Computed example of a mutant assay.
Amino acid sequence: MTPERRTDYRHIAFDGLWKNNQAFVALLGLCPLLAVSNSVVNSIGLGLATTFALVFSNTIVSLIRNVVDQEIRLPVFVLVIAANVTCIELLMNAFFHDLYRVLGIFIPLIVTNCAIIGRAEAFASRTTVDRAALDGLFMGLGFALVLIALGALREVLGLGTLLNGAELMFGESARNWTITVIAPYEGFLLAVLPPGAFIGLGLLIAVKNVIDEKSVNKSNKSEKTSNSQFKILLK
């Protein structure tokens, strides 16, 4: 792999995980993000389903981008996404039935997730298969990590636990995986209700903005120091 290609892949990864995170920056896919993220297990399930949908959809869209007319590309992209989500839904129903029942309508609603159709149109339809697949992977992982972080925050504040209901995804052997973070704890109802999701997401976005601002300030200070040293050398 050439240095240019390695740098390009690194840029795609950073964009998906942090700089252009679809939940933090673009604020896309908020309906499932806010509705399902009341526990870590639910968040993992929907996050993985969304990641697989992004990877497969981006890959297929990139493969067919040169044979689909511009006039019908959006309907075709939606059909591709719907086919992928249907396959994922059937697999979840077969292998993770209990979790599938908990997530309910939000699995098929992945089809309407603006993050997926947005990446298909803005990126996958304009680039090579490897870059499209990588973009789908890291955009999906970025979305999943936000989902899991929000789910962990709401579960800890709402129930005082982590990984409650892990058996829904990992089988009966995971029934003992529940971690009691706060004991004894009567729970905080607002955290597991929809308003708690909005408040939690706002807090996470605020933390990201603070980190970005500190990073920019540090970079500016380093640049000013370098410029000052260069001017001294010139004198």
Rank of each mutant, 00 (worst) to 15 (best):
N84F: 14
G45S: 12
V55Y: 04
S43N: 11
F96P: 01
L103I: 12
G196Q: 10
A144T: 06
P32L: 13
L103Q: 03
C114M: 07
L30A: 12
R5N: 10
I110C: 01
I179N: 00
R154I: 06
S222C: 03
Q22G: 00
D130G: 00
I110N: 04
V146C: 15
L63G: 08
I148A: 03
A53D: 06
L28M: 15
L203G: 10
F24M: 15
T51N: 07
V207I: 15
N227C: 09
Q70M: 07
L153Q: 01
A122P: 00
N164K: 12
R6E: 09
K214R: 12
G47C: 04
N66A: 13
I107L: 14
E223W: 00
S62C: 05
V102T: 13
V78N: 01
R10P: 00
W18N: 04
F143N: 11
R131S: 11
A133V: 03
I72R: 06
N93H: 07
V210N: 05
A183L: 04
A49D: 03
V41E: 07
L168W: 05
E121Y: 13
G47V: 04
A124E: 03
V216L: 13
N209H: 12
G187N: 11
S228N: 13
F96S: 02
V36T: 15
A49W: 06
A149R: 00
N84T: 14
F24S: 11
L79C: 15
V68P: 08
S62I: 04
W177Y: 08
I81T: 09
T50F: 12
N21W: 05
L168Q: 12
T128L: 10
E186T: 12
F143D: 09
A13S: 08
E71R: 14
F14Q: 11
C114E: 01
S173H: 13
S43F: 09
F170S: 06
E4A: 15
I232W: 07
P3M: 09
K224S: 12
S219I: 02
N164R: 13
E213S: 13
V78Q: 02
S226K: 12
D15T: 09
L190C: 07
I60P: 04
